[in-house]
Amino acid sequence: MANIKSAIKRVTVNNNNRVQNQSYKTDMRSQIKRVESFVESKDIENAKAALATAAKKIDKAVQKGIIHENNGNRKKSRLAQKVNELGA
């Protein structure tokens, strides 16, 4: 454990940030799984609605710096591709 006051504060701040980031990431993953489950059950309408929500969550995670921009774009692209294949 850190002895210096500033190091102790950094540990506390980092832990708080980690917990907050974890909730954003979990929420994002849940939305992605939701889209994939609708695609699995071939429910086009709900899949499109869930895709919009998932894209919003992914964008928010990118904005907060939780995931890299390219990673977010890749996730959105792959989800959109699955939904579009379902509609075709």
Results as ranks from 00 to 15, higher is better:
51 L>W: 07
27 D>Y: 11
11 V>T: 13
29 R>E: 11
57 K>T: 08
67 I>C: 00
71 N>V: 01
88 A>W: 02
72 G>I: 00
25 K>L: 12
27 D>K: 13
30 S>M: 14
5 K>W: 09
6 S>A: 13
17 N>V: 04
1 M>T: 12
40 E>C: 05
16 N>I: 14
76 K>R: 03
48 K>E: 14
69 E>A: 04
66 I>L: 03
74 R>M: 01
35 V>A: 03
60 K>G: 06
29 R>L: 12
47 A>P: 10
55 A>D: 10
63 Q>R: 01
39 V>Q: 07
75 K>C: 01
42 K>H: 12
53 T>H: 08
44 I>R: 03
18 R>G: 09
50 A>N: 07
43 D>K: 12
83 V>E: 00
88 A>G: 13
21 N>Q: 07
62 V>C: 02
32 I>F: 01
1 M>S: 15
17 N>W: 04
3 N>L: 14
10 R>L: 10
7 A>L: 12
11 V>E: 11
29 R>G: 02
55 A>K: 13
39 V>S: 09
30 S>K: 15
79 L>A: 05
72 G>A: 00
21 N>T: 04
37 S>M: 11
59 D>I: 00
75 K>V: 10
75 K>L: 11
24 Y>W: 09
30 S>G: 12
76 K>P: 03
31 Q>E: 08
4 I>F: 08
9 K>T: 07
65 G>D: 01
25 K>N: 07
43 D>F: 12
5 K>L: 13
33 K>T: 13
16 N>W: 10
22 Q>A: 10
23 S>Q: 15
44 I>D: 10
52 A>E: 13
25 K>D: 10
78 R>F: 03
44 I>N: 07
9 K>C: 03
51 L>G: 03
38 F>K: 08
51 L>F: 04
68 H>V: 02
23 S>E: 14
52 A>N: 14
31 Q>K: 15
44 I>P: 04
14 N>K: 14
78 R>E: 06
82 K>M: 10
69 E>L: 00
33 K>Y: 10
30 S>T: 15
29 R>M: 13
1 M>E: 11
64 K>D: 10
85 E>W: 01
66 I>F: 01
2 A>G: 09
57 K>W: 03
55 A>F: 03
58 I>W: 00
44 I>W: 01
42 K>R: 12
48 K>G: 05
22 Q>M: 09
15 N>D: 15
17 N>R: 10
36 E>Y: 10
40 E>Q: 15
30 S>H: 11
24 Y>S: 05
7 A>D: 14
24 Y>V: 06
28 M>S: 01
65 G>Q: 02
79 L>I: 09
52 A>Y: 08
6 S>W: 04
57 K>L: 06
9 K>H: 07
19 V>H: 07
52 A>H: 10
54 A>V: 06
6 S>V: 03
39 V>F: 03
17 N>A: 07
62 V>R: 00
63 Q>N: 11
84 N>P: 07
2 A>K: 14
88 A>Y: 06
62 V>A: 02
52 A>G: 14
37 S>D: 12
